[in-house]
């Protein structure tokens, strides 16, 4: 454009760059450096090479957290790929009042995870509604320890994650479904395909790129699970702290008064490698999806 001083763009960028540098790139660089030291929250820290990582390899608590997070991923991701698609199918219709249903299904997304976690803690407690119904129907003799057994607690948290995520991914699928030409369904109908068959042979192939996207997005967010476990266990991570996730463990190790910043940074790098792998996967899949559409 017309004669401009060189620094003008930088003035426009300055606040954003300052925040990003200070709050993202600086801490990331620090994490990468401190991971190779024995730095403590109170300061200090000597270069210790790969010692943190060898310690990590022998830390049973870390492996438990890793295992819990992996289990979380394995259960939550398929559920969040499939269920929101079915939900989107359900609201992908021109019927009176359908907009209201969409909004209603989205409302758990709006609420904070703390609110949702507390709501479900009450529903799933030993005095809660879910146990009352299960006992009443004589499905169980005693109330199930949904929140006080480490494994059941994890599954309760997964339920909460899925319940809260349904609406979010439903909206992503809705955008994809609106691109499926109606003629495909009509053709399948003419061919005598039933609803299940139409879903498998028409819907799934056309929204497959979106399913892959939802899969990677939900996998990235499941890898970072924290609030569900913290809230549902009142900050204890279950009996003996056995239901910790990776983020839960990083916070515990790195952020106490005697926080082991170096060791926590090493764990953070491991987590980063995991999420980065999933992000790259998402990018590749999206690229491929776009090529297929073109």
């Amino acid at each position: 454009m017309i004669g401009r001083r060189w620094y003008v763009p930088w003035l426009f960028l300055a606040p954003a760059l300052l925040v990003t540098a200070l709050m993202t790139w600086g801490p990331l660089a620090n994490t990468s450096v401190l991971a190779f030291t024995d730095a403590q929250a109170l300061g200090g820290g000597q270069f210790t090479g790969a010692e943190n990582f060898t310690r990590l390899a022998e830390d049973t608590e870390f492996f438990r957290a890793l295992g819990n997070t992996a289990l979380y991923l394995v259960v939550v991701v398929p559920a969040l790929v499939l269920l929101p698609l079915l939900l989107a199918q359900l609201v992908h219709a021109k019927l009176p009042g359908i907009g209201a249903f969409r909004a209603v299904f989205y409302s758990p997304v709006i609420a904070s995870m703390v609110v949702v976690g507390l709501i479900w803690s009450w529903l799933l407690s030993s005095d809660g509604l879910v146990n009352a119904v299960l006992v009443k129907l004589r499905l169980v003799a005693e109330p199930l320890p949904f929140l006080t057994d480490a494994t059941l607690l994890l599954f309760s948290c997964m339920l909460v994650t899925v319940w809260k995520g349904l609406g979010y991914y439903m909206v992503i699928y809705l955008a994809a479904l609106s691109n499926v030409p109606n003629e495909l369904y009509e053709a399948a109908r003419v061919d005598g395909a039933g609803a299940v068959r139409r879903f498998r042979s028409v819907t799934v192939p056309t929204v497959r790129p979106t399913m892959l996207l939802v899969g990677t997005l939900s996998a990235i967010s499941a890898t970072k699970v924290f609030a569900e476990i913290y809230v549902m266990s009142s900050g204890t991570a279950g009996p003996g702290g056995q239901a910790k996730s990776i983020v839960y463990y990083i916070r515990e190790v790195g952020l106490g008064v005697d926080g082991e910043v170096g060791y926590a940074s090493a764990m953070s790098l491991v987590l980063f490698v995991g999420t980065l792998g999933l992000s790259v996967l998402a990018l590749v899949l999206r690229r491929r999806g776009e090529r297929n559409e073109a």
């Binding site: 990003t20 620090n30 994490t31 990083i250 940074s265 953070s268 987590l271």
Partner: peptide, 24 residues
């Protein structure tokens, strides 16, 4: 370069850097 840095910041989860954000 600035645009690339902004894009790249999207793949850095807060959880990965939270300990060092706290120190900052």
């Amino acid at each position: 370069a600035v645009f690339a840095a902004v894009l790249a910041s999207l793949v850095v989860p807060f959880e990965v850097i939270m300990v060092n954000v706290f120190l900052t």
